[in-house]
Nucleic acid binder design. Structure first.
Lengths: 344, 344
DNA sequence: TTTAGCACTCTCGCCTCGAGAGTGCTAAAA
DNA sequence: TTTTAGCACTCTCGAGGCGAGAGTGCTAAA
């Protein structure tokens, strides 16, 4: 808690930097040589001992160099890493890819995941954006075979939900279209709750359909409704700390099991604002699977209207500066795209 | 090519069986003991030598036991594995899960992937079914902000495609609805080509929209349009042959890179018939990434109308009997569901 | 407060060595 | 002719030993 001296900050920064590059514990002598420090290795050793006592460094075993602890990374990320921007050329390349791709939400999300994975050489995840409050915009009903009916609903913001259901009696396409038009006109911009008031105005079939509509709207409001796009999972396997596959399995399992992933996103994302980037280091005591990992997350979209989450999962030894800038930049680009094309 | 003797078949079968269970090379003496063979280890050794000459077995190094070669697995799968059915209880459990889940294609596909992964303890993949010939059923146009228009199209079979595009001039929702209704009425059950004939009947805006419709239909006919559901990738990491992560990376990379995966499916699936299960062993000389793996694939759906692919990717040392039955059974269940609910 | 010097510790790669498992071959038995 | 017993040989694998190298902590001097 006590403020670190400038020299301690420098040494901690250098150790983090060196270790993220070499993967190895870093020793006092080697460090003095490499960075031409204007002090002796003994001095560095003393400072290292102090930082170790403070809990920011540790030794894998006696008489090895030091590596940062979780706490060390945390202080590095919160205080020491300088906010950098991605180089202009990189930014242009990324923007370019988005603007020349097919104008299609799914493509964008896939692309975002791919860019994050490549830039960070780690695993990436991107959730589809969804309305924080589902508002009805348009309903379409299409008869398929027999009693089966395909319901296609569009929400304000362009989210599309579809569902197949059946009615007790067969019904013609004309009748369905009439009902769909009626509901579309009545329900403009309504939330799921507001639809309750409309039940009296509808015939029995219409009521039944309205219930399905309400169900779908409710589902849409739950945190993560749509797809989650993952990429770069194999990057994780390339990291030396995951050479023994068991460790890697743990981390990838988290990405694979939607329920775990949703839980993670739900718990962390609520606190983060658009534009802000959140860094989770070592599972923060809650997620055992992530003991060796860090996650860098950001929200994108239009706050309060249509938002999604994107981020990167990699080893705790991660180039935080670069990763954070990348995540922030991709989030910004995606926010612009989503806002421009989907919000009305 | 020469027919194997009964005894050779027995020995090959036992070696495959034993090796899939232990992961270890299997030796003559151990085998005689374990299976109480009515012959001496020397006899077994002679037969093993013969099978090795034929190319069905190999030794990881001199004076180790034998393991099957790719060719050995191939002959095992094509001739020796007996076609078994899943036990009744397993089948019931699986069916049950499908029928009690939400009646929703996406859920089913996800579930299928999950069941395949769990049953086979390997990675699984399931592609969304798609029409082999895209036939128009229904069109909806929704104005969003400014010139942006959301196009929602339903194909015969229930496949939904959506696309955002813009027109040079702003246009009202009423006008859009009129156009959509007109196209819907004119184009019932038409293929993309047939739509060409309709251009003269439409005003300029209608023509422009029809072009987008045709583009979407063309896209839908390309082999794999929709999502691919993957599951159980971490199972692969648990296999001892993938302990050094490099090997595992190769295999997982294939699953992660959509383009590779689509290529794989495109090349293999064409030859396989519904109900038939296809087994690809060791990449078949074409896919280097799969040198250590096998894939068990089947198509599901309604032949010629709406079909998809599902399968399992695991180590070459795989319990083929069980995996094949599982893939076949899940494909059958999914075929029924798809046929019942989506085909009209 | 910083630095030089020094004894000590721990890992890592390399080597050796013996146990264990399995083979191929030969000659005898069925 | 086919099967089997016996035997010498080969190869892996794990344990143990050893030395080099890197790093530390401590003490005493600058």
């Amino acid at each position: 808690m006590n403020e670190l001296t400038e020299r301690q900050k420098l040494i901690l920064t250098l150790i983090v930097h060196e270790h993220t590059h070499t993967t190895q514990p870093v020793g006092s002598k080697a460090m003095v040589n490499k960075y031409n420090l204007r002090m002796s290795s003994a001095t560095v050793r003393n400072e290292m001992a102090a930082l170790t006592d403070l809990g920011y460094l540790r030794q894998p075993h006696t008489s090895a160099g030091r590596i940062p602890t979780e706490e060390g990374y945390r202080i590095f990320v919160s205080k020491l890493v300088q906010r950098t921007n991605l180089p202009m050329t990189t930014r242009r390349t990324i923007s370019h890819q988005f603007y020349q791709s097919r104008q299609d939400l799914e493509q964008w999300l896939r692309l975002a995941a791919s860019i994050l994975a490549n830039q960070s050489q780690a695993a990436s995840l991107v959730t589809a954006p969804h309305s924080e409050k589902a508002l009805f915009k348009h309903l379409e009903l299409i008869a398929t075979r027999g009693h089966q009916i395909l319901l296609v609903m569009v929400l304000v913001g362009g989210e599309i939900r579809q569902q197949i259901f059946s009615l007790p009696e067969p019904i013609s396409q004309e009748q369905l279209s009439t009902i769909a038009t009626k509901i579309t006109n009545l329900c403009q911009n309504c939330s799921a709750d507001q639809l309750d008031a409309l039940h009296p105005q509808l015939d029995p079939v219409g009521k039944e359909i309205l219930v399905v509509v309400q169900e779908e709207m409710a589902l849409s409001e739950k945190l993560i409704t749509g797809d989650i796009y993952l990429d770069g999972m194999t990057n994780i396997l390339a990291e030396p700390e995951f050479a023994e596959s068991e460790e890697a399995r743990q981390a990838l399992k988290l990405l694979e099991e939607r329920s775990l992933l949703e839980d993670l996103l739900a718990r962390t994302i609520m606190t983060s604002t658009i534009g802000g980037v959140q860094v989770l280091i070592g599972g923060e005591g809650t997620w055992d699977e992530l003991r060796q990992c860090s996650i860098v997350l950001a929200r994108y979209g239009s706050p309060g209207v249509l938002t999604g989450t994107l981020g990167v999962l990699g080893p705790m030894r991660m180039p935080y500066g670069h990763t954070i800038s990348t995540v922030r930049f991709v989030a910004d680009v995606l926010s612009d795209l989503v806002t421009e094309t989907l919000i009305n």
